[in-house]
């Protein structure tokens, strides 16, 4: 098990370097001179020369990449052109807000999605099932901006609709993100549970005289939640890397907003930083999913140990 996890972590290193390289190359070929973005049109020549030197702008791209990688390893992702603050501190500032939103939304989606999925599976094709699945389908298919604006309209005056000042401000954006995630989870839980309930070992359990409720909880649920765990890990990592639309819509100064601002301002170091951060979070989420899966499913545990 430990061997499996170490192997999985080691595999992520080349992936990470590759991603950093790709982002670096992509952003280097984007038109636009960083100095113009930083200083505007009218700058003295000696200032330009000094900055060009200190930022290694006249070096070949691979030297620049090596510098970037070297600095990144030391936690320095450069300085934002626009905000004149280090990218790491900007991200460190924005992340707690995104984290709070993500955790609230994820918790909401689990608390609602999993039980709804279970009830729908148990009461398959009943009115409750159709109702839950209808809600789930809406959550999955309605785009965040439409749901967000709808909620803002409905709850205007009742709940805060913009900004990030109190826990109350979290409710609406968490609902937007949570509804979507809950929809996916409910649908997946339902289909997975229905599939598991057809399995032979459920019949064995029934033949043992296990009561229906205990059968679902003790026998079916653990098996059916295996794919759900993977889905939850993917969801939370995508939530953690910043919900661009929702954060923009509700003016939450999180990672998503930071990335949008960076794009709008052609703030390359900041954009690079946020994209790399997102990558790390997603790789971490997948890693967590693999490890969780490994804990939950003994079959994988053994294969990995070999």
């Amino acid at each position: 098990m430990l061997k499996y996890i170490t192997k999985r972590i080691l595999v992520t290193i080349p992936v990470l370097i590759g991603v950093v390289f790709l982002i670096f190359v992509m952003l280097s070929v984007v038109p636009g001179d960083p100095l113009t973005v930083m200083m505007g049109e009218k700058v003295k020549v000696d200032v330009i020369e000094r900055l060009t030197k200190s930022m290694h702008l006249d070096d070949p791209w691979y030297v620049q990449f090596a510098w970037y990688l070297w600095n990144a390893l030391h936690g320095d992702f450069g300085t934002s052109y626009k905000l004149m603050r280090s990218v790491s501190s900007l991200i460190a500032n924005a992340f707690p807000k995104t984290l709070m939103l993500a955790v609230t939304a994820a918790a909401l989606s689990w608390v609602i999605g999993i039980p709804a999925g279970i009830i729908s599976a148990v009461k398959k094709n009943s009115l409750v099932d159709h109702l839950f699945m209808g809600f789930a389908l809406c959550g999955v298919s309605l785009p965040a901006f439409s749901v967000g604006m709808l909620l803002q309209n409905i709850f205007n005056g009742i709940l805060p609709v913009s900004g990030f000042a109190s826990p109350m401000h979290l409710i609406l954006p968490a609902l937007v993100l949570g509804w979507n995630a809950a929809g996916t989870i409910a649908r997946l839980t339902r289909s997975s549970l229905l599939e598991v309930l057809e399995d032979d070992y459920i019949r064995t359990a029934r033949a043992k005289g296990v009561a229906p409720l205990s059968m679902i909880i003790n026998h079916a649920l653990k098996n059916s939640l295996l794919p759900v765990i993977t889905m939850m890990a993917i969801q939370i990592s995508s939530l953690l890397s910043g919900a661009v639309i929702t954060e923009t819509l509700f003016s939450i100064p999180g990672i998503g907003r930071l990335a949008v601002d960076a794009i709008n301002g052609r703030d390359m170091p900041l954009l690079q930083g946020t994209v790399i951060f997102t990558t790390v979070v997603i790789i971490g989420g997948n890693l967590a999913a693999d490890i969780l899966y490994c804990v939950a499913d003994p079959r994988i545990r053994v294969e990995g140990g070999k």
Partner: peptide, 30 residues
């Protein structure tokens, strides 16, 4: 009565046991 006075052995031993629970526990449950 099921599992107690009448019990059953199935055709497919490969799939008739719960893959995520130890075999001892499964027998103990009965």
């Amino acid at each position: 009565i099921l599992g107690n006075q009448i019990s059953m052995i199935f055709q497919e031993p490969m799939t008739s046991l719960n893959p995520v629970t130890t075999v001892g526990k499964q027998v103990k449950e009965a």
